[in-house]
Design a binder for these strands. Sequence first.
DNA 1: CATAATAATCTGTACGACAGATGATCTGGG
DNA 2: CCCAGATCATCTGTCGTACAGATTATTATG
Lengths: 155, 155
Amino acid sequence: MKGLRQDLGFNLGVLFRAYVKASNVVLADIPGGPRGYQILTAAVHGDAGSQVALCRELGVDRTVMTYLVDDLEKAGLVRREPDPRDRRNRRIVITEGGRETWEHAERRLRAVGAHLLGDLPEAEATAFRQTLEHLARRADAADPVSHRCQLVEDL
Amino acid sequence: MKGLRQDLGFNLGVLFRAYVKASNVVLADIPGGPRGYQILTAAVHGDAGSQVALCRELGVDRTVMTYLVDDLEKAGLVRREPDPRDRRNRRIVITEGGRETWEHAERRLRAVGAHLLGDLPEAEATAFRQTLEHLARRADAADPVSHRCQLVEDL
DNA sequence: CATAATAATCTGTACGACAGATGATCTGGG
DNA sequence: CCCAGATCATCTGTCGTACAGATTATTATG
């Protein structure tokens, strides 16, 4: 398997899957798993102006978002509130229980992350986190969708 | 969305999805997409001793592997050869056309990776690659499955 | 006021993953 | 030598999820 071991994408996938695997355990009691958690996070920070906005952020289909929020609402973690400024929008607001659930999960997720970076020396771990954050931000800003053609052409 | 931006797992996901998105375009003409490519890579390096071995490496279900290899074989990129040492095993061997296809894809994928790390200074990019490779190797060795309980308990 | 656009939802469909059973082959113990 | 158990690959059936398309409520534009 030496061939793949050096591949950026492959390694990215391995690490990501390891993380997902672990977080699935941690987030088992949150409806929707990882994605449910991400929605909670947005709600906690008040970033959930509308469902479509969330869809674009999290990269999920709009029809999926509907029943994700359904389940979170059923579990009493969030409420849907019509936006007074545009009553088509539903603002996703966090409940008491939702905040507690989120805080608990957030603490445990942090531990998972720490465990994943595990044996790295402090400096290297920090550098990795920073670079990763930078890259993610950039990848997100310059959405690959608009780069595809360009990418495919120039090789 | 500030809340999620600092999250290790979230950033991993964003970057990984960006990569997958781009590579899907590059690997569009390989049956099975990214996973087909990974199988080709293993075949090129002669690492495909058996299908189950590949399954474990790549993290795909054994029943899925069957039709993945089916498609690659139909496209003339690989051949199944019975292993003389254990005739239950099928060794996946690369064909002429398969090697060419793989080499072409590999070159383009490298470009995608370079594009993803894009504006990083040379030193930082290298460091990131190395750390990532290290982490992936570790995550793979210490399979989270065996660490779950431990993980969940100690918090 | 009429028409187009957008947010959310609902319905139906299709694809992919996984569980379980089957056939072929290997291994080890009697 | 033979039989039981394990393993590799395959096939079948089922289920869950994602996505396309139509629908309803609301807003924006002419």
